Simulated assay, not measured.
Amino acid sequence: MKAQQHTRSQRRILNLLKNLNQGISAQEIYVELRSQNQGLGLATVYRALEALKREGAVQVRMLPNGESLYSSVHEDKHHMTCLECGKSISLNECPVHELESQLHRSHQFTIFYHTLEFFGLCNQCQAVHQD
């Protein structure tokens, strides 16, 4: 894969995401960059994120409420998310790495990242619904 030339806006966003250990929304990126006196317009943030996503430099995780969380692509992150309280539990293992390799070989498809999400009810919310 050839190295991409990033705009100043894209570099600022990538630096922010690399320093975080969690996903962050576009609005939170906008607020954080403004607090660092690196103000970008919200539309610029969205355009930069879209370009970074298309080249595989950032990954997007969609929450059940429709919010998108952006993070740098460094490792697969998989979650179980409670639909009631929103609690999200990270999974430390990935059962689909072999499938990813097979898809890459059989379809000559370059895969930048994948996500795996399970949705349901956590223990506390199950207890509330059973009462």
Rank of each mutant, 00 (worst) to 15 (best):
E28H: 05
E50I: 09
T7C: 11
K87F: 03
Q126M: 11
L99N: 14
A26M: 11
H129G: 01
K53I: 02
R34V: 00
R12A: 04
E93V: 14
H79T: 01
E28V: 00
L20A: 04
H6K: 11
P95I: 15
M62Q: 10
S9Q: 11
E100M: 14
E50K: 15
S88A: 15
H129A: 11
Q38H: 05
C94Q: 15
S88I: 14
F119S: 13
L33D: 00
V58T: 08
H114C: 13
E75M: 07
K18N: 10
R105V: 02
A43F: 07
I111E: 01
L83K: 14
Q38V: 08
G23I: 10
H97N: 15
Q10W: 07
H6L: 15
T81G: 04
G120V: 13
R12I: 03
Q27H: 03
L83V: 07
Q27T: 03
H78D: 10
E67A: 13
Y113H: 11
G39F: 10
P64Y: 01
Q27M: 00
L52Q: 08
T115I: 10
L91Y: 10
N92G: 12
N123L: 06
Q124S: 02
E55V: 13
R54P: 03
S25G: 01
S106T: 04
E75P: 01
H79S: 02
H79P: 00
Q27C: 00
K2F: 02
A43W: 00
T110N: 13
L20V: 04
Q22V: 14
Q36L: 09
T81C: 08
N21Q: 11
M62D: 05
S71W: 09
L16S: 03
M1R: 10
V73E: 01
N92F: 10
V45K: 14
G66Q: 09
Q22L: 13
I24Y: 02
N21H: 11
E28T: 02
L63I: 04
E67N: 09
L16E: 01
E55P: 09
E32T: 08
T81Q: 08
Y46V: 07
V60F: 02
N15Q: 06
K77V: 09
Q108H: 08
N19K: 15
Q10F: 06
P64D: 07
S106D: 03
R47D: 08
F119K: 13
N21S: 08
V73W: 01
Q22R: 15
L14R: 14
L103F: 06
R47K: 14
L49F: 06
S25Y: 00
L40S: 00
C125P: 05
R34T: 00
C82W: 03
V60M: 07
S68M: 03
V31E: 03
N65R: 06
L42P: 05
A3K: 14
E93T: 15
Q126C: 10
R11C: 02
C122W: 04
K77G: 00
G39R: 08
S35Y: 04
P64A: 05
E32F: 02
H79G: 00
C125R: 00
R11N: 03
L33I: 01
G23N: 10
M80N: 07
M80Y: 07
A57W: 05
R11E: 05
L42C: 04
R61W: 03
Q38F: 04
S88R: 15
C122R: 11
